[in-house]
Design a protein around this nucleic acid. Structure first.
Lengths: 191, 191
DNA sequence: GCACCAAACGGAGACAGTCCCCGCTTACTG
DNA sequence: CAGTAAGCGGGGACTGTCTCCGTTTGGTGC
């Protein structure tokens, strides 16, 4: 379902270069890095960029697919190493770190957890949703997570909390703190 | 400290018009509404717009100041009517509703709760921070809120959660639900 | 090797947005 | 009613997006 004919050699070369340059550019300038500039830096015309990646979102996704898939794999790793509740917490932490520190991933993950729409069908969306679903269900079965929340809700809240941590200065300390506040809740005594 | 000489009549007229048109435009097209278009719709040149409001942020702030101040007043109202915990919860709810439903206010409030920087000095930032501080302290004294959180943290988390609710579709139901999840925490049993 | 052709390229150019600059207009003052 | 500085406005430089189409090139059959 993917290839009719394999890509022409020059096309593949340009595709790879664009991906590499794009990852750098997004990391450096955030999700709004100039696309024409990316094309220029990759030594191709802007037409070539837009042919391979019709939208900014498409490029963003392609540039970070492997990172997202690593995150998906990491979920299984953590599920084996830690107790269900811990595994979920740690994974959400690593997700949040990526969201904030890898500039450009925020927009990508944000659109991946949106309600309906085309974005829901992307690879990144599927991988992340799958990973969180596994961890959430396990945590709920272990009684470490309230049973009346959907995986996607956990994902959205974590994304929101990551944004909050970002506003706070985005150190790893802030991320941990804000996630733990979400876990324990603001209500009640505590300090 | 505000006026050396009062504004010239035509300047004031243009200022008012711009504010009115800007509020409409931001509501209609979100925070990225075209500034030149706002100028055009207000019947002034773009130079005039930029002289009165040097940055998009400045215009955004000016356009929504009264709404923000209403929110500040609402905090005191709620503090009188309800128990401290309830008052805080309800205020955060109304804040979140504004954040999401009034397009353009999200960016404004977001920058208002950022760490340091110039944005911290704005009127909107001061009003909102003041309001939440009063409610948070009262709630903590009443034992309805854990004592080890700063007002600004509550504000940031609420903003993050509002973003999460927005991703979910932004109905009032979602906002209430996500805020209550934040209040009670995700840990433990529950459904 | 070579000729063919679809696939792929690339960059000019149309369009939209931001923001500054500076010659012109106009509200206030005496 | 004249003088003047505050204020106006829109032209234009610049940056970014995205498309269109003439040109080039890699792969294939001979």
């Amino acid at each position: 379902m993917t290839q009719g004919r394999p890509m022409r050699a020059d096309a593949r070369r340009n595709y790879e270069r664009l991906l590499k340059v794009a990852a750098e550019a997004f990391a450096e300038h955030g999700e709004n890095a100039s696309l024409d500039d990316i094309a220029k830096r990759a030594g191709v015309g802007s037409g070539t960029l837009y042919r391979h990646f019709p939208t900014r979102q498409a490029l963003l996704e392609a540039a970070y697919v492997d990172r997202i898939e690593a995150l998906g794999a990491r979920a299984d790793e953590l599920a084996e190493e830690l107790a269900p509740g811990e595994a979920l917490a740690e994974w959400l932490y690593e997700l949040a770190v990526g969201t904030i520190q890898v500039r450009g991933m925020k927009a990508l993950l944000g659109s991946a957890v949106t309600d309906g729409g085309a974005a829901a069908l992307t690879v990144c969306g599927a991988v992340v949703k799958g990973a969180v679903a596994r961890l959430v269900v396990a945590a709920q079965e272990a009684g470490a997570l309230r049973g009346d929340v959907e995986p996607i809700e956990v994902l959205r809240l974590a994304h929101g909390v990551a944004s909050a941590a970002e506003l706070a200065g985005a150190g790893e300390k802030e991320i941990r703190r804000y996630l733990s506040l979400l876990g324990e809740g603001l209500r009640g005594a505590g300090g």
